[in-house]
Simulated scan of single mutants.
Amino acid sequence: MPSFRPLPPSLRPTARPKRPTPEPKSIHVPVARAMVDCGVYCDGMRLPGKYTHAAALSKVRELEQAGKEAFVWIGLHEPDEHQMQAVADVFGLHELAVEDAVHAHQRPKLERYDQTLFLVLKTVNYIEHESVANAREIVETGEIMIFVGPDFVVTVRHGEHSGLAGVRKRLDATPQILKLGPYAIMHAIADHVVDSYLDITDLIETDIDTMEEDVFSPLTQTNMEAIYLLKREVVELRRAVNPLTLALQRLGTDHNDLVSIEVRRYLRDVLDHNIQASDRIISYDELLTSLVQAAVGKVAMQQNIDMRKISAYVAIAAVPTAVAGIYGMNFEYMPELKEVWGYPAVLTFMLVVCLLLFRAFRRNHWL
């Protein structure tokens, strides 16, 4: 047999090196996709034209160099990390506040980063429903984050119900307020949000009054699930409103070098309204707790009444059962067993005893 010699190493085929798998390129959505509006304001008036966030700030800096008071107001709706970081790089926003603005789910709070204030507001919306018993949700929440600097306002909105178009339109029509500067924008947004708290507490009060009538009405059955749903929504509303009181207090007292006296006067009015809404919510929470206790007592009382009725009917049914059991033992020598009138007499006896028991239970309100 012929022998096969191995090829020398120089003539052996070499394996082709594997090409590295290219990493997928991340597609960044431009900031304009998340930007709702961008306006440049000078001496209380909005300048015409459309701007990007960088061009708007450059325009403001040009006006400031010319000796005019100007600022930019940018509104964003649920930006991603890249979009928010692009805005933060232009306006010099702190990375911790930027992270909060992207991920949301923050408690109402006020924080300061150098010359920039960061305010978090919880927005609430009342969901219309025919009755609480048929509702799955009564209050939905969102968030508004506000960055305010010497010459800019950046608002970041989360949720579909907390639009600020009406606030911007109202401010554009009142130049005397816009002349107070960027912190007047913060006041207007906070005032808009807190006023919605008062409106929603009025609607919640109507639901609680209806629930109270149902609980204390003797002709209706108590729906415990509806009460717990309403209490859960009030708790959610309390978490949105109560922490804002401290933030507004700090905004009116701790940052006098940033917020003017005139704006702080307006903020005190917003604080009073927020305290009023908070007091209402606390009273609603206590009232619903009392309604829960009353509903539990009503259910227990109803169960008591039902048990008494069942016991009464069982006692009445026990009489014919006992007599029928005795005469069903088939003994030969039993009273009236062979009499013609025996069967009607036993039936009459059972009927009379049952009627007497029914009358006694009815007299004692068991039936």
Rank of each mutant, 00 (worst) to 15 (best):
M1P: 10
S3H: 08
R5L: 15
P8N: 02
P8Q: 04
R19S: 12
P20F: 04
T21M: 06
E23C: 05
P24R: 12
A32R: 14
A32C: 07
A34K: 04
V36A: 12
C42Y: 00
M45Y: 09
L47R: 09
P48A: 09
T52H: 09
T52D: 06
H53V: 06
A56T: 07
A56H: 03
L63D: 03
G67T: 08
F71C: 07
W73T: 00
W73S: 02
L76P: 13
H77R: 14
E78M: 06
E78W: 01
D80T: 11
Q83T: 10
M84P: 08
Q85P: 02
D89V: 03
G92P: 09
H94D: 15
L96A: 03
A97G: 14
E99Q: 13
D100F: 08
V102W: 00
A104F: 06
A104N: 09
Q106D: 07
P108K: 08
K109W: 04
E111R: 06
Y113G: 05
Y113D: 14
D114M: 01
V120G: 05
A133M: 08
I138G: 03
V139S: 12
T141M: 06
T141F: 12
I146G: 02
I146P: 11
F147N: 12
V148Y: 02
V154P: 14
V156Y: 14
L171P: 05
T174K: 08
T174H: 09
Q176K: 05
L178T: 09
L180V: 13
P182W: 04
P182C: 06
D191I: 01
H192E: 13
V193S: 11
Y197P: 07
T206I: 11
D207V: 09
T220D: 10
Q221L: 11
I227W: 04
I227E: 05
Y228T: 03
R232E: 11
R232A: 11
R232V: 00
E233C: 01
V234N: 15
R239Y: 10
R239G: 05
P243A: 06
T245V: 15
L246K: 02
A247E: 05
R250E: 15
L251R: 04
D254P: 01
H255R: 09
N256Q: 13
N256W: 01
D257E: 14
D257S: 15
V259L: 12
R264M: 13
L267V: 14
R268A: 08
V270I: 04
V270A: 10
H273L: 01
N274K: 01
R280H: 13
I281M: 11
S290H: 11
Q293M: 01
A294K: 02
K298D: 07
V299F: 00
M301A: 12
M301Y: 08
Q303G: 10
D306V: 03
S311F: 01
A315E: 00
P320I: 09
T321E: 04
N330S: 10
N330M: 12
M334F: 12
E336K: 00
L337A: 04
E339N: 12
E339Q: 09
V340C: 01
W341C: 10
A345H: 00
V346E: 03
L347K: 02
M350L: 04
F361S: 13
R362C: 03
